[in-house]
């Protein structure tokens, strides 16, 4: 079965990103496909590689990057939501004259059309976080 996920809360404050991660792992382990994971609202904060949690805690962002590289997942961050919250890839940083970018590996920045397409393409579309 083809799944698509949407994550609407940032890391650490809410469990939504953790739950989505464990759900994605379970889906992949069961042999299903994850078509796309879309990050919106404060969920875009899951995509900054500047995140530096204490060593004895899980690294929510690295975990997503690793899962993406292992399973060739499509992790998409909404460009408008990301810019509002200071999440930029190299191109966006240059375009807006910022002194650095912070998008974590395995994520890409794109538009809301990717969210709509995920809803259309997937057999099951699940939303994590309100």
């Amino acid at each position: 079965m083809k799944f698509a996920l949407m994550i609407n809360q940032g890391p650490y404050t809410h469990q939504a990103s953790d739950t989505a991660y464990h759900f994605a792992c379970a889906v992949l382990k069961a042999g299903h496909e994850v078509f796309r994971i879309f990050f919106y609202h404060d969920g875009v904060n899951n995509a900054t590689r500047m995140t530096t949690p204490p060593q004895d805690d899980r690294h929510v962002i690295d975990r997503w990057s690793e899962l993406a590289s292992q399973h060739k997942l499509d992790l998409v961050v909404c460009v408008a939501a990301a810019q509002r919250r200071g999440i930029l890839d190299e191109d966006e940083a240059r375009r807006h004259g910022k002194d650095g970018d912070n998008l974590a590996p395995g994520f890409r920045i794109s538009g809301l059309g990717q969210l709509i397409e995920a809803g259309i393409e997937a057999d099951r579309f699940l939303v994590f976080g309100n």
Binding site: Y40, H41, A80, A81, R84, G111, L112, G113, L115, I116, E117, I120
Partner: peptide
């Protein structure tokens, strides 16, 4: 909260898809 505002952006973008 920003949900209404960012929600409306999804609706307007989504309208371009034939749904």
């Amino acid at each position: 909260t920003i949900y209404g505002h960012e929600g409306l952006e999804v609706v307007l973008v989504g309208a371009a898809f034939d749904q």
